[in-house]
């Protein structure tokens, strides 16, 4: 597949989360990550787009979006961690798992993955206090019964932050 110059974040994400994909398409997933790193407002735009896809009623679209999110967290560094670590984004993940919002309509597969991601970030990103706040609130509410087992490949090792576009 030829690389498209100037593809937007939205375009990359639509391809990476297309419900017609037979399997996860890493070319588009990494393309999305790379595009985030290229754009000054990449992380801010990306989390908004991801939140929307993660809330998709189509399970496969949501699952792929979570895979993209996970890849972004590994590849886009601190700028993205900061955006994910805001309640503005975390609240959208909370809505997915909470019965007060969308939790009753969302599949267990999606909810489980959200909780695994949140928990893994509480360990890997201790400086992002809001992630811990959000996760512990889910526990207090009984939405998370116990800490999930984290697969070895989920140990998030943040990559070094990309060169900042502005000082």
């Amino acid at each position: 597949m030829a690389e498209a110059e100037g593809e937007s974040l939205e375009s990359w994400l639509n391809k990476a989360t297309n419900p017609s994909n037979r399997q996860e398409d890493w070319e588009y997933i990494i393309g999305f990550c790379d595009q985030i790193n290229k754009e000054l407002e990449g992380p801010q735009i990306a989390v908004r787009l991801l939140a929307h896809k993660i809330q998709s009623p189509q399970e496969w679209e949501a699952v792929q979006a979570l895979t993209v999110l996970e890849a972004c967290m590994k590849n886009c560094g601190r700028r993205l961690h900061n955006e994910v670590g805001k309640f503005r984004f975390l609240n959208e993940l909370i809505k997915v798992v909470s019965p007060k919002y969308f939790g009753d309509r969302v599949s267990e597969k999606v909810k489980t993955k959200v909780i695994e991601l949140l928990f893994s970030w509480t360990l890997a990103l201790p400086e992002e206090a809001k992630i811990k706040d959000a996760y512990h609130m889910l526990k207090r509410q009984g939405i998370v019964q116990s800490d999930p087992p984290i697969p070895m490949d989920r140990t998030l090792i943040p990559s070094p932050p990309p060169r900042p576009k502005n000082p």
Binding site: F87, R88, L90, I94, K95, D133, A134, M137
Partner: peptide, 15 residues
Amino acid sequence: LGEESEERDDHLLPM
């Protein structure tokens, strides 16, 4: 500045 006010407005969802 802009970031500080963003910080102030960033609240956990009421449950």
